[in-house]
Measured scan of single mutants.
Amino acid sequence: ATNIVSKVKWYNSTKNFGFIEQDNGGKDVFVHKSAVDAAGLHSLEEGQDVIFDLEEKQGKAYAVNLRIK
């Protein structure tokens, strides 16, 4: 899926990962520091509106092509 609009559930800049809620009630989506860095960001804030693409690797959903709404 591409261009999903949602909100950051939480992000831990010390552990370099977090999760984004899915508005459709699906499972929370993992977001890694590499996606945050690629977006030119230093961190994410809880409740922040984001747009991302969903990529599945080894049966897990990852946020990629992250951008701020």
Rank of each mutant, 00 (worst) to 15 (best):
N65G: 03
K27L: 10
V8G: 01
V64N: 05
E55P: 00
A35Y: 06
V50N: 00
Y11P: 00
K57E: 08
F17N: 01
N3V: 06
E55I: 14
R67T: 06
T14E: 12
R67W: 04
G40W: 05
I4E: 04
N65I: 03
A1H: 13
S6D: 02
K69C: 14
V36G: 02
E55T: 09
Y62N: 06
E56K: 11
G18P: 02
K9R: 09
S13Q: 11
N24M: 10
I4Y: 07
D23R: 15
I51K: 05
V5R: 12
V31H: 02
L41S: 04
Q58C: 14
N12M: 08
E45K: 14
G40L: 06
N12P: 01
L54S: 03
F19H: 02
Y11H: 01
Q22T: 13
D49L: 15
V50K: 00
F52D: 00
D49C: 15
N12T: 06
H42L: 13
V29K: 01
K27V: 10
D28W: 05
F19C: 05
I68H: 06
I4K: 09
F30V: 01
Q58G: 14
L54Q: 04
G40P: 01
K33E: 03
G47Q: 06
D53W: 05
K57A: 11
D28T: 05
E46I: 14
G25A: 09
F19W: 11
F30D: 00
H32L: 04
N65E: 03
D53V: 04
I20D: 01
D49T: 15
A39K: 03
L41G: 04
D53L: 04
G25N: 10
E21P: 04
K60G: 07
F30T: 01
A63R: 00
S6E: 02
L66N: 00
I68A: 09
I68D: 07
L54E: 02
N3M: 07
L66H: 01
Q58S: 12
K33A: 10
D28N: 08
E55H: 11
A61I: 15
N65D: 03
A35D: 05
N24V: 10
A39N: 03
A39D: 01
V64I: 11
H32M: 05
A35W: 05
D53E: 05
K60N: 08
A35V: 09
G18T: 02
G47R: 06
A63W: 02
F30G: 02
A1M: 13
T2L: 13
D28K: 04
L54G: 00
V29G: 00
V64S: 07
S34G: 08
Q58V: 08
G25C: 10
A38G: 07
L41E: 06
G26Y: 10
L44K: 01
A63S: 02
S43V: 11
E45A: 12
V31P: 00
G47K: 06
E21V: 15
L41A: 08
I20A: 02
K57S: 12
